[in-house]
Amino acid sequence: MTISSPVTNAPAGATIISARDVHKSYGSGQNRFDALKSISFDIREGESIAIIGKSGSGKSTLMHVLALLDAPDSGDLELDGVDTKRLRGRKLNRTRNKTFGFVFQQFFLTGSNTVLENVILPMKIAGVGRAERKRRGMAALEQLELADKAKNKAVNLSGGQKQRTVIARALVNNPRIIFADEPTGNLDSNTGAVVEDILFTLNREHGITLIVVTHDEDLAARCDRRIHIRDGRIVEDSSEVAA
């Protein structure tokens, strides 16, 4: 499988995401729930990181904050040296669409649309022209060995084919960071291993930063670094243990 490299702007190993004393809560009064408490760490360009923890630990909230899908209540979050508080409206959407790719356990494919239509969606949002959308979409499907499924309805794909379609969709805008939320959770072990291999190929051979949220200890062990979340706090960061 041949996978093209993304366009990157920072030197390898430079800090791409920096979080300082980040807090996030939901509700108010007696119903207030503190999902993140004083989160501080850096992510370097090209790292693979597993965010691990039990259900309700705050790991999914942390991913949403890092991916700019939600904003922290307090603290500082920088993306490539830019304070994310400065990113609003169209600028926020454009930054998120250009910088990140998303691979979710639930797939979030539109079953009635073709595989190609699902893959090119981020480019439609980005305003890429129709011919270029098709060219890049087909190139991504070829990389994931799904070109022959381009005209198939997404509903008719197997679980593994759906997840590879999701990865193709994540790649079409040449992201610098891929967020993967339980990417093998709905797959059998053999198909899951194939999906893992694709993600780590993108990370290790092409420099895409990989941030994985997972319960799977074996998947976490493949990452360069593991960040363990409990009750909204980082209780262990393997990079600090190694240091």
Score class of each variant (00 low, 15 high):
residue 168 A to M: 01
residue 171 L to E: 00
residue 176 R to C: 05
residue 173 N to M: 05
residue 181 D to H: 06
residue 176 R to D: 09
residue 225 R to W: 11
residue 167 I to H: 00
residue 170 A to E: 01
residue 222 R to W: 14
residue 221 A to N: 15
residue 210 L to F: 00
residue 182 E to L: 04
residue 166 V to C: 14
residue 218 D to M: 14
residue 219 L to S: 08
residue 177 I to A: 02
residue 162 K to R: 15
residue 168 A to N: 01
residue 189 S to D: 13
residue 189 S to W: 13
residue 217 E to V: 12
residue 207 G to Q: 13
residue 205 E to H: 12
residue 171 L to I: 00
residue 213 V to L: 07
residue 157 L to H: 12
residue 223 C to I: 12
residue 165 T to K: 04
residue 211 I to M: 15
residue 182 E to S: 07
residue 218 D to C: 10
residue 213 V to S: 04
residue 204 R to C: 08
residue 160 G to H: 04
residue 220 A to C: 11
residue 200 F to K: 03
residue 163 Q to P: 12
residue 186 N to E: 11
residue 218 D to V: 15
residue 173 N to V: 02
residue 199 L to G: 08
residue 206 H to Q: 09
residue 157 L to A: 11
residue 197 D to S: 15
residue 173 N to F: 02
residue 166 V to F: 06
residue 213 V to P: 06
residue 198 I to S: 00
residue 206 H to E: 05
residue 216 D to M: 10
residue 205 E to Y: 05
residue 202 L to E: 00
residue 177 I to D: 01
residue 223 C to N: 12
residue 223 C to K: 07
residue 190 N to A: 15
residue 167 I to C: 01
residue 173 N to Y: 02
residue 188 D to N: 07
residue 208 I to P: 13
residue 159 G to K: 04
residue 168 A to P: 08
residue 224 D to M: 13
residue 225 R to K: 05
residue 189 S to H: 14
residue 209 T to Q: 04
residue 206 H to G: 03
residue 194 V to C: 07
residue 215 H to M: 06
residue 212 V to A: 08
residue 163 Q to M: 06
residue 185 G to W: 12
residue 182 E to Y: 08
residue 224 D to W: 09
residue 158 S to R: 05
residue 204 R to E: 14
residue 217 E to P: 01
residue 181 D to L: 09
residue 162 K to E: 07
residue 165 T to P: 09
residue 225 R to C: 11
residue 225 R to V: 12
residue 188 D to F: 06
residue 180 A to P: 03
residue 215 H to A: 10
residue 180 A to L: 03
residue 193 A to Y: 09
residue 166 V to P: 09
residue 186 N to D: 08
residue 208 I to Y: 03
residue 202 L to Y: 01
residue 180 A to F: 06
residue 219 L to A: 04
residue 171 L to M: 13
residue 175 P to F: 02
residue 193 A to G: 07
residue 196 E to N: 10
residue 195 V to N: 05
residue 188 D to T: 04
residue 158 S to P: 10
residue 204 R to V: 04
residue 206 H to I: 04
residue 160 G to M: 13
residue 194 V to L: 14
residue 189 S to K: 15
residue 185 G to K: 14
residue 190 N to R: 15
residue 217 E to Y: 04
residue 211 I to F: 08
residue 172 V to D: 03
residue 191 T to A: 12
residue 167 I to L: 01
residue 219 L to F: 14
residue 184 T to E: 12
residue 220 A to F: 13
residue 177 I to M: 06
residue 172 V to K: 02
residue 174 N to W: 02
residue 202 L to K: 00
residue 209 T to E: 09
residue 225 R to A: 09
residue 172 V to C: 03
residue 189 S to T: 15
residue 164 R to I: 09
residue 202 L to I: 02
residue 176 R to S: 15
residue 167 I to M: 00
residue 181 D to C: 05
residue 203 N to P: 10
residue 177 I to P: 02
residue 160 G to K: 08
residue 210 L to H: 00
residue 200 F to T: 01
residue 158 S to Y: 09
residue 198 I to A: 01
residue 175 P to S: 02
residue 220 A to L: 12
residue 193 A to T: 13
residue 158 S to M: 10
residue 161 Q to F: 05
residue 178 I to Y: 03
residue 213 V to A: 09
residue 183 P to T: 07
residue 215 H to V: 08
residue 187 L to E: 08
residue 193 A to L: 13
residue 195 V to I: 15
residue 221 A to S: 14
residue 220 A to R: 05
residue 216 D to T: 09
residue 206 H to A: 07
residue 225 R to S: 11
residue 215 H to K: 07
residue 177 I to S: 01
residue 215 H to G: 13
